[in-house]
Simulated assay, not measured.
Amino acid sequence: MRLGPVEARAHFEGQPVARLATADETGRPHAVPITFALDRNVLYFAVDHKPKSTQNLRRLRNIRTNPRVSVLVDHYSADWTALWWARADGQAEVWTDPRRCRTPVSLLRAKYPQYADRSPEGPVVAVEVSEWSGWAFSR
């Protein structure tokens, strides 16, 4: 059954990980898992201290070129009556100003104990969600 915006957002909010889908200027897709925090209709994620070869990440380059993104969470179960997914579509913006990043980083720290000793230090991405959608086998 299709989930309405309120239901889709509610399914989304409690999840620990999502998949971010971006596309470059030619439309070439790119999907990666992210940790995230929500504040009303804005979804935040940040480049953190997990090992990466660079902070010039493809997801950030794609957002700077094409800010339209989708973020997906889902639940799989061998019991297919428990299946669901929820998606947030919107416009993303990369933030580098430490003052502007303060609140999103605080939200991420509150959600993830892994950030207690070391906050995300890289850019923050803010996604202004324009559409919440989803599906569940049953409600």
Rank of each mutant, 00 (worst) to 15 (best):
A92F: 05
P67D: 14
V129S: 13
A78E: 10
E13W: 08
A31R: 12
L60W: 10
N62F: 06
E93M: 01
S70H: 09
R87V: 15
A23L: 13
L20E: 13
R118G: 00
T81N: 03
L38F: 12
E7T: 13
H30V: 11
F45D: 07
H30M: 10
Y112V: 11
R61C: 01
R99P: 00
T35Y: 09
V124W: 04
G90K: 07
Y112I: 05
A126I: 01
S70T: 14
W85A: 00
W135N: 05
L43T: 00
A23T: 14
V69W: 04
D97C: 08
A136H: 10
G90M: 12
W84S: 03
H75W: 00
Y44H: 15
H75C: 00
R64L: 04
R109K: 15
T81S: 12
V17Y: 06
P5L: 04
S77H: 04
R109P: 04
R58N: 07
D24V: 13
A126F: 02
E131M: 13
P5W: 05
P123M: 11
I63W: 05
V42Q: 12
K52P: 04
V71H: 12
V69F: 06
V105S: 09
T103I: 09
Q114K: 02
W135C: 01
V17I: 14
V32Y: 05
W135H: 02
H11L: 14
R109T: 14
F137D: 12
V42C: 10
T103N: 00
P5S: 14
T96P: 01
Y76T: 11
G4Y: 05
D74T: 02
F12G: 01
E93F: 00
E13Q: 11
T22L: 13
V71E: 08
T35F: 09
L57E: 08
W95C: 08
A23G: 11
S77Q: 04
W85R: 01
G4R: 12
A8C: 12
H49F: 15
W135S: 02
P113R: 03
R9L: 06
S130Y: 08
N41Y: 03
H30G: 13
T22P: 10
L43A: 08
F137A: 15
S138D: 11
G122S: 03
R2P: 03
R118M: 01
S119A: 15
W80P: 02
V124T: 04
P29M: 15
K111A: 13
Y112N: 02
V32Q: 07
S130N: 11
L43E: 06
F45N: 11
V17W: 09
D97F: 02
S77C: 05
M1E: 09
V124K: 02
R40V: 14
G134Q: 05
R19Q: 10
R99M: 05
R99W: 10
T35R: 12
A92L: 01
T35N: 11
A86R: 03
R99E: 15
F137C: 09
A18Y: 07
R40Y: 08
D39P: 04
V127L: 04
P51I: 04
D89F: 01
A136G: 05
V73D: 10
V125Y: 13
T26I: 01
P5D: 13
A21E: 05
H11C: 03
T65R: 14
W132P: 07
D117G: 15
D79S: 04
V94G: 07
A46G: 10
E93R: 06
L3K: 11
V17C: 06
Q114A: 08
L72E: 09
V71S: 11
L107E: 06
F45M: 13
